[in-house]
Design a protein around this nucleic acid. Structure first.
Ligand SMILES: [Zn+2]
Ligand SMILES: [Zn+2]
Ligand SMILES: [Zn+2]
Ligand SMILES: [Zn+2]
Lengths: 127, 127
DNA sequence: ATTGTAATTGCAAATCTTTGCATATTATAC
DNA sequence: GTATAATATGCAAAGATTTGCAATTACAAT
């Protein structure tokens, strides 16, 4: 029998995971359950899920963009580009900023997983 | 004779261009001048230039990330994810926000080309 | 149930990007 | 200038992602 829906499997993979995953990593994990699945199907499903706002896609400085499930309670990150250390923000302050942009531009902001880059205090000292 | 420096050619390509370019597009344009250049060399050079802060790399919703020259006067964008329309921000308001993040986290922010996504007023109406 | 339509999937091929390694270039030290 | 080390480049191969197309599945209408 053919898989009923790859989307569900992808959701499960993303839920059972704290970290952010690349498309390739998601494909590998989906394949454990659905051994016959084709990579293109997973890639296309991810694209669809991002487009529908169920999943976020972000460049976090790694070798490829990473995906994460979008929850009611959004979050954002600040990544050290020297050592990779990651801070996570609750939405509060960021959504204030995004709300302000929304008011000033008339755009309805859809960015749901903002990633900023910087150099952390430790790495600044090491300079 | 071998090219003295691919970096210079890439800079010229990026300067003679209003828009943002993908790695592939940059490679194609570099090849016009340096016909024997290898794609891997261009890709690695771009990586280097990004790492050194001379070039920004961003996902702007297209099929691949895009590169742009970083100038004294940074800018940022708001992209409509329905129709692709792009707004460009001068740095003012955004840098206020980034400065606030910097103060609160101790990170020295290096994000120099922020891209936000949303739905533009026109596309909201078409709903 | 049958039909028709739209969305999803697999497969193969094409394309894009990365990587390992040898060579060539550039910079630094003596 | 010569030797030494560090960086940049080309080449070939591997790897990751996208695309075209035909077949399958899901869904709605009859
Ligand atoms: Zn996250
Ligand atoms: Zn750090
Ligand atoms: Zn720009
Ligand atoms: Zn629009």
């Amino acid at each position: 029998m053919r898989s009923s829906s790859i989307t569900n499997t992808i959701f499960k993979v993303l839920e059972g995971q704290e970290d952010h995953l690349t498309a390739k990593e998601i494909y590998e994990k989906v394949k454990v359950t659905l051994s016959a699945v084709d990579p293109s199907t997973v890639y296309r499903s991810l694209e669809r899920m991002v487009h529908q706002g169920q999943v976020s896609v972000s460049d976090m400085g790694g070798p490829a963009v990473v995906y994460e499930r979008v929850t009611r309670d959004p979050h954002h990150h600040l990544v050290c580009e020297k050592c990779g250390k990651k801070l996570t923000f609750k939405d509060g302050q960021i959504s204030d900023f995004l709300g302000q942009v929304q008011k000033e531009t008339g755009f309805q902001i859809t960015t749901n997983h903002l990633v900023l880059f910087g150099v952390c205090p430790d790495c600044q000292k090491k300079n």
